[in-house]
Amino acid sequence: MENKVEIRDLSYRVLDTQILQDISLRVGKNQFIGLIGPNGSGKTSLLKHIYRALPPQKRAVFLNGREIESYSYREAAQQITVMRQENASDFDYTILEMVLMGRSPYRKYYERDTEEDKEIAQNALRFVGMEAMAERSFSTLSGGEKQRVLIARSLAQEADILLLDEPTNHLDVHYQWLLMEIISGLGKTVLSVFHELNLACRFCDYLYVLKEGRILTHGRPASIVTPEMLSEVFGVRAEIIPTDKGRPYIIYQSSST
C-alpha cells in the first residue's frame, strides 16, 4: 500500500526530558489510524512533528515518500490539514472568513478570495450543516458549532491527509460521534489522537499505542485492545466485549493501581 505519511526513528527531547523515542509508523492511503496513550505519552508532539509546529528532525518524517523538509509550508498545507481543539482568540472573524482561511495555501498573500474559493467554502459549510450561518461571528458559536466550522475549514483546504488532535475532546457525545462520522465518511487518509478509547476502537483501522514517548504496540483494534494492555498502559481494569462488527468495546471497571 502507498504510504502517505511515514515516520522513521523519530526522537525528540527537550532539555533532559525524552518526549519521543525511536518512533516509526506508517499511514497508508485512505487508512484511518489512531494514536492512543495516557497523558504526556507524546501523542500531540508526534502530530506536531508531522505538520512542523515543532522543529523537524532531518529525514525522519516523510510525506508521499519525500522528506517533509523538502516541502515548503505552503506545499505541505496542500497535502496535510490539521484539526485541533479550537483555541480562544481575541480576533473575531465571521464563519465564512474562518473557512476561507483554508484556501490560503492556494493563494498568494496579496490575492483576493476568488469565486471558486467562496464556492468551495460554502460547500464545506453545507457539508457540516452550517451554511445558513456563514456571516455570523465565530465567537458567538457554541463549542460544537465552532468545531464544525474548523472541520469545514479543513475540508476547504482540500488536503488528502487529515491530522486530528482530539478535536472532539470537549464536545458532547452527540457531536463526538457526528464529527467522527463526518470525518470517517470523507474516505481520506486520517491520523488521529484519541482520548476516548471506544471512539478509537469504533473508527480506526489500526492503532498505535504510545507510552512514555515510545510505541509500545500497534495493530488492529481487535487484536491489541486487551485487558492486559489497558492495565499496563492506562492503569485501568476493564472488560472487553466484542461487538457484532468485530470491534472491541471497553467496559471500564476500576483504576487498577
Binding site: 509550508y73 498545507a77 496542500q78 496535510i80 490539521v82 485541533r84 482561511m101 495555501p105 483546504q157 491530522l163
Partner: peptide
C-alpha cells in the same frame, strides 16, 4: 489573518 489564529494553526494553513 492566519497568524492571528495562533502559530500552530498558521503553520498548518501553510504559513
Amino acid at each position: 489573518n492566519l497568524l492571528s489564529q495562533g502559530d500552530e494553526t498558521a503553520v498548518s494553513l501553510g504559513l
